[in-house]
C-alpha cells in the first residue's frame, strides 16, 4: 500500500510495538512538518529509541502506519558507528556507494558534506583520531549524503561538551531552516528551548503531550523561587512567619536551607511573582535576589512523568 503524506514530511498513526507480552509503544501518533524541529522527550524506557528505530526502518511496528515523503536518515546515538581505521572521507564514500552512488558521485558528495559539517580539513584523517564532537558531525554528514526529507537525530548531544552540543544544534537548525524535517530525541530537556518548534512527550510507550515548547512549559506546576530578603536589621534577619503575614494570600513562603536570609516562594498562576515582590516591599522588606527554583521544562517533564496516563 503506497500512501502520500499530505503536508507533513512524516506522519505516524496508531503505532504499536510489542515484544512478547510487553507493549513498548502503545498507539503513538506524531506529525513532523517540513522545516520543523520536533523534539521527542521522555524518560528512560519510554519507547523513544524503539520509535526512532521503527522510523529509521530498523525494526517493524506491530500495528500502525508510518508515512514519509522522501528519504529518512538517522544520526544514531552511539559513537562507534563508523569504521575507525579508515578516514572520514572513506567512510562517507563507502556509505554513499551503499546508497547507490557511483564512486565519482560518492566522492564529490562526501567532500561536500564534510565541508558542510566543518570537517573538510580532517577528511583524510582516520576516524579513530576524531574527537567525540567530530565523530558526531561526521555522523550528521553521513545522514545528509542522500538529501533526506526527514532527519532522525537520536541523543546527538548527550555526551558532548557545551561547545560541541551548540555546534550540532546550530548545524541541525540550519538544515531545518532549509526545509528539512527533524525529529530530535534528547534527554537534555533544557536544550529544546529556543531550538525545537514542537514536542512529543512519551512515557510508558504512550504520548503524554504533543504541542509547542511554550505549551509544554505550561504543563509545569506553579513555579517556586528562591528569594533573598532583608529587613534592615543585619543581626535580626526576617522570619518566615512575618514574611507570610506580609504576603497574605499572594504567595506561600518558607525558610530555605540555603541561608538565614533565603526563602522559598511559591506563587500561583493568578498571583504572579511581581505581586509577591510588591507585597514584601510595601511591608518594608528588601528583595535582594530572586531565582527560579528548577527549570520550567524540567518541571513540566517531571509533571508529565508522574501524571497518570489518561
Amino acid at each position: 500500500m503506497r500512501k502520500e503524506a499530505q503536508t507533513d514530511a512524516m506522519a505516524v498513526r496508531g503505532l504499536v510495538r510489542r515484544f512478547g507480552e510487553t507493549t513498548v509503544l502503545d498507539g503513538v501518533d506524531l506529525r513532523v512538518a517540513p522545516g520543523e524541529i520536533h523534539a521527542l522527550l521522555g524518560p528512560n524506557g519510554a519507547g523513544k529509541t524503539t520509535l526512532v528505530r521503527i522510523l529509521a526502518g530498523l525494526a517493524d511496528p506491530t500495528e500502525g502506519d508510518v508515512e514519509t515523503v522522501g528519504t529518512v536518515s538517522l544520526v544514531p546515538s552511539g559513537d562507534r558507528t563508523m569504521y575507525l581505521r579508515i578516514s572520514g572521507l572513506e567512510n562517507l564514500i563507502f556509505f554513499a556507494r551503499l546508497h547507490g552512488m557511483r564512486l565519482r558521485d560518492a566522492r564529490a558528495r562526501s567532500l561536500e558534506m564534510l565541508d558542510q559539517v566543518g570537517l573538510a580539513d580532517a577528511a583524510r584523517v582516520p576516524v579513530r583520531n576524531y574527537s567525540h564532537g567530530m565523530q558526531k558531525r561526521l555522523s550528521v554528514a553521513r545522514a545528509l549524503l542522500v538529501e533526506p526529507a526527514v532527519l532522525l537525530v537520536d541523543e546527538a548531544t548527550h555526551d558532548l561538551d557545551p561547545e560541541g552540543a551548540i555546534r550540532i544544534r546550530k548545524l541541525v537548525g540550519d538544515l531545518a531552516g532549509g526545509g528539512m524535517a527533524v525529529l530530535w530525541t534528547t534527554q537534555r530537556i533544557e536544550e529544546i528551548r529556543e531550538f525545537a518548534d514542537t514536542v512529543t512527550f512519551l512515557a510508558s510507550g504512550r504520548v503524554r503531550f504533543n504541542g509547542t515548547v511554550a505549551e509544554l512549559i505550561h504543563q509545569a506546576p506553579d513555579p517556586r523561587y528562591v528569594v533573598r530578603v532583608r529587613n534592615g536589621h543585619p543581626d535580626r534577619p526576617p522570619q518566615a512567619v512575618a514574611l507570610q503575614r506580609a504576603l497574605g494570600g499572594v504567595a506561600q513562603i518558607s525558610q530555605s536551607l540555603a541561608g538565614r536570609d533565603q526563602f522559598v516562594l511559591a506563587t500561583s498562576e493568578d498571583q504572579p511573582l511581581g505581586a509577591a515582590v510588591v507585597a514584601l516591599s510595601e511591608a518594608g522588606y528588601h528583595v535582594l535576589a530572586c531565582q527560579r527554583e528548577g527549570a520550567e521544562i524540567e518541571d513540566a517533564f517531571m509533571a508529565l512523568v508522574t501524571e497518570e496516563p489518561r
Binding site: 511496528p61 508515512e67 522522501g70
Partner: peptide, 14 residues
Amino acid sequence: SVSVDRVGPRPAGL
C-alpha cells in the same frame, strides 16, 4: 494495519 511507506524521489547522484 501495519504499513511503512517512504514516498519520494530517489536521492541525487544515484
